[in-house]
Design a protein around this nucleic acid. Structure first.
Lengths: 75, 75
DNA sequence: GTGTGACTGATAGTCCGTC
DNA sequence: GGACGGACTATCAGTCACA
């Protein structure tokens, strides 16, 4: 599990928590919708600048997007 | 203060803590020496992949490299 | 509402050297 | 040991059309 994977999962997780669609988050962060899609599918290694912008829109600390999440629904 | 700045400061901080020169860290992480120099001078926005590799070599959690540090020598 | 391929411009990242 | 520049390649950043 790479950091890129963790970021992808967290991006989607926090996006859902905020109730945003990819489209809505993209609009708010000034980023293209398909690029958000690509990040969530682990296509790219996002730069620290993009991470910061997304974290701001998701109202979380950038570190949170790189933190392994506890299983809320552990087997 | 952007995330890029915070990363730059922490990179240098943890590198010193490990007693590595830029050259040595670069060699260990398989990254170019001049690129480490550039990151510490805030020239580039590192990708999440590079952050991960550097964190590994510095024996710290990637999150630590993005965390604002407490002032150990506050005026 | 999202995934994907194709495309272009910008920048990340390498390798050379000098100070 | 590190800053800095130039030239180069790889990859990211950003957009579009279509399923």
């Amino acid at each position: 599990m790479t950091l890129r994977d963790i970021f992808a999962v967290n991006l989607r997780r926090y996006r859902y928590l905020q109730g945003f669609s990819q489209e809505e988050l993209a609009h708010r962060a000034g980023i293209d919708r398909t690029y958000i899609s690509a990040l969530e599918r682990r296509v790219y290694a996002a730069s620290i600048d993009v991470i910061e912008r997304l974290a701001n829109e998701l109202s979380v600390d950038p570190k949170e997007l790189l933190s392994r999440q506890k299983n809320t629904s552990k087997k």
